[in-house]
Design a protein around this nucleic acid. Structure first.
Lengths: 228, 228
DNA sequence: GTTTTCAATATTGTGTACAATTTTGCGCAC
DNA sequence: GTGCGCAAAATTGTACACAATATTGAAAAC
C-alpha cells in the first residue's frame, strides 16, 4: 500500500517513511537508526539514508551523536514545554485566520479527517489516530494559507508526537476529538474569535494531559537512560 | 580573520560561512551555488558542500532545483509577507517574556550589540549592519530562554535578510536603530507589555519600509527573471 | 574473582568514481 | 537568415571504497 514501483526510494521519500513511522509510534524515542540497517531495509544506498537522517536531524526528530549514530529523538521536559509554548503562540491565531477563509470544501475535507480519526480509534490503532490528529492541525494551517507558519507547525506536531510517546499519562484514553469537532464547527461558521479560543483551550488540554513535572529526567525505562 | 587553522572546514562551519555571506549580502539572491566551485573555494570535498547546501535548503535560504543546482533563494512577495506575519506572531510575545527575565549582563550585551551596529553603519558597511541588526532580534529570543522559538526566529531573520535584499525601498537610509534602543530600555525596566508593544511596532515599521505591493512578480532585474 | 588493558569488530565519517540529467554549441535543413 | 535537432560538455545525483572512531570481547594482572 505504501509503494507500488520497485524503483529505489529517493531521500525525500525515505524521510516521509521514517517521519510517518515516528508519528505513528512504530519507532519509539531512543531507537537506534543504524545506517546500514535502514539502507538494507529500503534497498537504498547509505548515501540516501544519511541524507534523510540529516534532514530529520535538522527537524529535531532524530538526534545525531558523533561517531555513534542517529537515534529517534527523546525530547527533554524543557523541550516539551517549549514546543507547546511555541504552538500556543502560532496555532490559535492561525485558526483565527483559517476561520475567515474556510470554504465548504475545506469543511468536507476536515470532516473526512475526523471520521478517519474516529475510525482509527475504533479499530484501536492509536498510532494512526495520533497521526491523523496531528494532520488535523496541519490542515488548519493549510486553510489559513500560511505555508511558512504551516512548516513550523508541521515540525512542532512531529515533535509533539515524540512528546506524547514519552510523557503521556493515561495510556488507554486517547485524545477526545470533540475539540476537533468544535473547531470544525467554528470554522464552518467562519467565527475567528471562537476558533482562536477553542484552539487555545485545546492546546491547554493537551498540555495538562501530559506529565510534564520534572520528577526525574528519566525518559522511559532504565534501559533507555543507560542506553545513551 | 575568519580562520586560523588549515584543517578542512566541517559541513557545519561551511553552513555558517555561507549563512553569513548571505546575511551580509555578499551573496545576492539568485546567485548560483555550484558544488564544485564552492568545494574548490573552501578546499573541501563535494560531499561536505552537498551536506551544507541541504541544510541551507531546509532553512529556505537556498533553493534546490533538481539536476540544475542550488541557488540563493529569492523569496516571492507572498513568502515575504508570510515571513513577517510569522515574526509578528512570535517576536512580540517573545520580547515580553525576555523583558521579565532580563539581567544586567544581558543589557550590557545588547548595548555592545547596538554599538557595533552604529559602528558598522558609520563605516558604511551596510551588510554588516544588517547582520548585526538581525542578531539583536535573536539575542532577545535567547534572553527569553526559548530555544525552540529562537530557532524559528533565526530562520525568519535569515529569510528577512533575503527579503530586504530584494524589496528594500530606500537604498540609502538603513534601518534606524532607535527602535532597538527603545527595546533595550524596556527590557532594562523589565517592562513586558512595553517590550511587546515596541517589538510589534518595530516589525510594522520594517514591513512598511519594504515594497511588498504586487506590481509584477519581478524580483530584481530582467536578467534575474530570465536567469532562472 | 574483579579489574584493566589491548586487540578485534562494527559503525560512522569522508572522499572519490561512476551514472543520469541538463545545458550548450554546432551543424544542417528549410 | 532563422529554427530545429543532435551531439558534446558540464553539472548534479548516486553508489562505493577507504579512513577514523567507538564498542565489544577476551586475556592477563592484581
Amino acid at each position: 500500500m505504501t509503494e507500488l514501483t520497485s524503483a529505489p526510494l529517493t531521500a525525500e521519500q525515505l524521510v516521509s517513511q521514517l517521519e510517518l513511522a515516528i508519528h505513528e509510534h512504530r519507532l519509539a524515542p531512543g531507537t537506534k537508526l543504524g545506517e546500514d540497517e535502514i539502507a538494507s531495509i529500503y534497498s537504498v544506498s547509505r548515501t540516501t539514508v544519511r541524507s534523510a537522517l540529516q534532514a530529520l536531524s535538522l527537524q529535531r526528530l532524530v538526534e545525531h551523536k558523533r561517531n555513534r549514530g542517529a537515534y529517534v529523538a527523546q525530547p527533554s521536559l524543557r523541550e516539551a514545554r517549549e514546543v507547546f509554548e511555541a504552538r500556543a503562540l502560532l496555532e490559535p491565531r492561525t485558526a483565527f485566520s483559517a476561520a475567515e477563509r474556510t470554504t465548504e470544501e475545506d469543511i468536507a475535507k476536515l470532516q473526512v479527517h475526523i471520521d478517519a480519526e474516529h475510525e482509527a480509534m475504533a479499530v484501536g490503532n492509536h498510532g494512526r489516530a495520533l497521526y491523523l490528529s496531528g494532520q488535523f492541525h496541519i490542515e488548519i494551517a493549510r486553510i489559513a494559507d500560511q505555508t511558512t507558519i504551516e512548516t513550523f507547525i508541521k515540525q512542532l506536531i512531529s515533535r509533539s508526537s515524540l512528546i506524547v510517546a514519552l510523557y503521556w499519562q493515561r495510556r488507554t484514553a486517547m485524545c477526545e476529538s470533540h475539540a476537533h469537532d468544535a473547531l470544525v464547527s467554528a470554522l464552518a461558521d467562519q467565527d475567528g474569535p471562537r476558533a482562536d479560543e477553542l484552539m487555545r483551550n485545546h492546546l491547554l488540554d493537551l498540555v495538562t494531559s501530559l506529565d510534564l513535572r520534572n520528577k526525574t529526567s528519566a525518559p522511559l525505562s532504565l534501559k533507555d537512560a543507560l542506553g545513551q
